[in-house]
Every structure is written in structure tokens, then in C-alpha cells.
């Protein structure tokens, strides 16, 4: 079927609109982040900076102190927050990945007494809203003195992402062709040998996708660290960003520069691995 010229026109218009909607706020953010504060206070508003500056980025990454007087945080705290977020993301992802790759394969390719029931229990926990668990976990964390610790934060992150990750990977393995594993077993491989040497390499794309999805999830967490962290040593970048918002005035260039910097790692992950991510997210239906 060759599309008619009218259909083509609709497609071009639709795609243009979609790109404007998706990228517009990001482009506006970049513009604001390179403006000066007086420029953003002009009426009528100035969208494009007269003389683009990278001062805010320099302050955020160089440890300089810039902020509005009534804001709780200033730019010098940003570097540490990015490091906190990155560390928590990497460690959580490693834990969740190990658990869910093993469980995803185990639940879809092996069968033992009670395996289906166990799968259902694990998947049912997805329905429990994160908040119910987090409020309860807060109490346990307080008892174990894990509030404001890296370990406590990572455990709660992992608990809130693992069920989804297990489900996504279970679906992924279920749709994976079983022939290579069968061939390996016929050739005399043990189950574990086949898993390690044949199935693990076969799951490369799925593992890449799951890594990306879990990283994106953890990187953006806000409510959990808002409850569990209150020190500079543990606060992630999402929490620090909200503290740049003043009670009465907001330094928009600084705030948006902080936002744009925090967006760079997830944007790279999403763009580089987008084919894998799409494959995994749309397999579940």
C-alpha cells in the first residue's frame, strides 16, 4: 500500500508536532539555563538569552555558591548530589539485574513444585504501591538506623524496582527462542552449562534493555530519597534540585541548568539503548 499525498502530509504534520512537544520543554530549559537571572525576570519574558552564558553550569560543577537567598540549597552542593545519584544507581542496578535475570530465566524455563505460585506471589507485589512499602520500610530503617545511609537507600530502591524488573525479564525470556538451549542440551551440556554458555549470551539484548530501564528508574527516584535522606552525603540530585526552588523567588537559570545536567545521563541511556528499551517495554502486553 503506497500512502496517498494527503496521508503523507498528515504524517509529516503529526511527526513535527510530536517532535516539538517532546523536545520543546528541553530546548526551552537549555535556553533558560544559559540566560542570566535578570533576563529571566524581564516582562515580557525573554525566551532566548541575548548573550548565552555557561556560568550556571560552571557554578554547579565547580562548587561555586550561587542561589537565591530563600532557597534551601546552593550550587556548591550539586556535585556531591550527582555522585550520590550515580553511585546509588549503579549499585542498585547491579543488585536488581542479578536478581531479576536469574529469576526471569528460572521462572520461565524451569519448573519445580510451587514455582507457579511463587511467581504469582512475586508478581502480585507489583500491585502494592511503592508508598505503602516505603512508609513501612521507613519504620524498619529507623529501627536498624539505616536512615541517611547509602545501604538503606539502595535497599529501598531495589525493593521498589525488583518486582517490575523480574516481570519484564520473565516476559522477555518467555518470548526468547528455546532452540539454542535445546541444541546445547542434546549436545550433552548440563542445564547450568547451557544457561551460562548459551542462554546468557542469547539474552544480551534483554539484559541491556533491563539495565537501561532499571537505571532510568533509579536515577529519577524522588519520593524515596525525600523521606530517607536529609544529609549532603546521601541526598540525590533530584532532591537537591527541588531545594533550589526558593520560597518567594526562584533562580530559574540555575534551577534549569541543574535540571539539564541531571538529564544528560538518562538521555544518553535512552538514546543509545532506545531500540532495546522499546523492545522490552512493549513485549509485556
Amino acid at each position: 500500500m503506497r500512502p496517498t499525498p494527503a496521508a503523507n502530509l498528515v504524517r509529516v504534520a503529526g511527526v513535527t508536532l510530536l517532535i516539538l512537544w517532546s523536545l520543546g520543554p528541553i530546548v526551552m530549559g537549555v535556553m533558560t539555563s544559559m540566560s542570566t537571572q535578570p533576563e529571566t525576570q524581564q516582562v515580557p519574558a525573554r525566551w532566548i538569552p541575548e548573550d548565552p552564558t555557561l556560568d550556571n553550569y560552571r557554578a554547579l560543577l565547580g562548587g561555586e555558591k550561587i542561589s537565591s537567598d530563600d532557597a534551601a540549597a546552593d550550587s556548591s552542593q550539586y556535585g556531591r548530589a550527582i555522585v550520590n545519584t550515580a553511585l546509588a544507581t549503579v549499585v542498585t542496578t547491579a543488585i536488581v539485574l542479578a536478581i531479576s535475570v536469574c529469576a526471569g530465566y528460572g521462572f520461565s524455563r524451569t519448573e519445580f513444585k510451587g514455582s507457579k505460585q511463587l511467581l504469582w506471589i512475586v508478581l502480585a507485589t507489583m500491585v502494592i504501591p511503592i508508598f505503602t512499602i516505603v512508609v513501612a520500610l521507613y519504620k524498619l530503617m529507623a529501627e536498624l538506623q539505616l536512615i541517611n545511609t547509602f545501604a538503606g537507600l539502595v535497599l529501598v530502591y531495589a525493593s521498589s524496582t525488583a518486582p517490575l524488573a523480574i516481570w519484564l525479564f520473565y516476559n522477555y525470556v518467555r518470548d526468547l527462542p528455546p532452540d539454542p538451549e535445546e541444541a546445547a542440551l542434546i549436545d550433552g551440556c548440563t542445564r547450568f552449562g547451557a544457561f551460562r554458555r548459551v542462554v546468557l549470551p542469547q539474552m544480551r539484548s534483554g539484559i541491556a534493555a533491563l539495565t537501561a530501564i532499571v537505571m532510568l528508574f533509579v536515577w529519577g527516584q524522588f519520593l524515596i530519597p525525600l523521606l530517607l535522606t536529609s544529609t549532603e552525603e546521601t541526598k540525590p540530585v533530584t532532591v537537591i534540585i527541588t531545594e533550589f526552588i526558593g520560597k518567594y523567588t526562584t533562580n530559574y537559570p540555575l534551577l534549569t541548568a541543574a535540571g539539564i545536567l541531571a538529564v544528560i545521563p538518562p538521555a544518553i541511556i535512552a538514546l543509545v539503548l532506545n531500540r532495546h528499551i522499546r523492545g522490552m517495554l512493549s513485549a509485556g502486553g
Binding site: 517532546s22 526551552m28 534551577l255 535540571g259 538518562p266 538521555a267
Partner: peptide, 19 residues
């Protein structure tokens, strides 16, 4: 481009739209 807004932290979505 389509999946980009989903990949960003929702705090940052709020920040980008706030102004």
C-alpha cells in the same frame, strides 16, 4: 525522540515546565 520525556526524572519535567 518519542521516548525521551519518559526517560527523564519527573522532578526535572516539573523543573523544565515550571518557568
Amino acid at each position: 525522540v518519542l521516548i525521551l520525556p519518559w526517560a527523564l526524572p519527573s522532578v526535572v519535567s516539573g523543573v523544565l515546565w515550571r518557568r
